[in-house]
Design a binder for these strands. Structure first.
Lengths: 191, 191
DNA sequence: CCGTAAAGTCAACACTCGTTGGCCAACGCT
DNA sequence: AGCGTTGGCCAACGAGTGTTGACTTTACGG
């Protein structure tokens, strides 16, 4: 009994997150994760049951979206971009796991679809409904399309910055990126 | 001797492209590719030497970039977006291979960096140099940054449309996407 | 102070992968 | 017809994978 159970469990989880983020699901082997955590591979199975279960808990995090109602209407795009980077810069591991595994694992892809539909689209629809004052019918809402355009730009820049490490996006100041992405998101949000 | 050598070779290559595009490098097994081509796995080695060599020839294609000098200056963004989709819609397989493997294979990532630096950045630098009439010094050219922003948006929308199949981007008309992406690229290109 | 449960190690299983070498069969030529 | 070349298959090897069970060591409580 060197370490406590909870302590070892956290150690395994941390090593798993790092490996999954750096190498993706297939190339991150249980043996390598165990070696990083300083224990035997069998302990991974003991504490998490299977590699897939380990990945499930390692990839179980929330990507909360802010309320767009605050922030001046002319700068909502910039505010949204800033929010994303504020979250990503403090922990890019989760995002790297998401992008590295989404291209292979259908479950992760489905999760992104859900986040887009349930967490990104509604605030945008609300923002646009608030824009049209009065009982404007806003016939066929294109909020899903606008949300998807926002997602495509943000996923793209995240891919280039954290996964592909494409210069000069990978080394730019987050502030500079926000300044450049702001007008784009603004265009997608409010035309 | 059922088929000619060249015929079988093409058959293997076609199966390989489909598998690599759909599953990425690791999950596209030599055995599965051989089964798709209707021959024995050993034939793959005979004709291509190794799995990595097979991948190299399967992923060896050019992503040519158009000349931005034509097209009216106010619509250069839209023209560029249209060009990408014209190329992608006729053969999305190559692009899927690129995106699915770039997140795992460092060589593919490096290839993207090279394309960005040698094929995308120069035309943009030239476009901007042509914009400033006269001997404007254009002190520190931010063409690399602008090119990277363009790349981030286009890679992002390609990821969403062809790999993640994120609704509604995956089913939208290419024309509609071009219309929405045009202003964004325009902003990145000419401020 | 000893027994017991927890924390950890070890060796192995069953499987899949890329890869190899030997064998077989069909065609084209003289 | 005979022969060599060529396209193809079969069986197997060696390495690496996730996973399992039995064994060993450590700490703690009566």
């Amino acid at each position: 009994m060197r370490r406590s159970a909870e302590e070892t469990k956290r150690s395994i989880l941390a090593a798993a997150r790092e490996r999954f983020a750096a190498q993706g699901y297939d190339r991150a082997t249980v043996r390598a994760i165990a070696a990083d955590a300083g224990i035997d591979p069998s302990m991974v199975m003991r504490y998490f049951g299977s590699k897939e279960a380990l990945f499930a808990t390692a990839a179980d995090f929330d990507l909360a979206i802010p309320d767009l109602s605050r922030a001046p209407r002319e700068r909502v795009g910039e505010a949204l971009a800033a929010h994303f980077f504020r979250r990503w810069e403090e922990d890019s591991g989760q995002l790297r796991i998401l992008l590295r595994t989404a291209v292979t694992d259908e479950a992760v892809t489905e999760r992104i679809r859900t986040v887009l539909a349930e967490q990104i689209t509604p605030p945008i629809a609300e923002l646009r409904a608030a824009g049209t004052d009065g009982p404007a019918p806003s016939a066929s809402s294109d909020a899903p399309t606008r949300a998807a355009m926002v997602a495509s730009q943000m996923l793209g820049v995240a891919l280039c910055r954290y996964v592909l490490r494409l210069p000069p996006v990978d080394t730019m100041d987050a502030d500079d990126l926000v300044a450049r992405l702001g007008p784009t998101l603004q265009g997608y949000l409010v035309d």
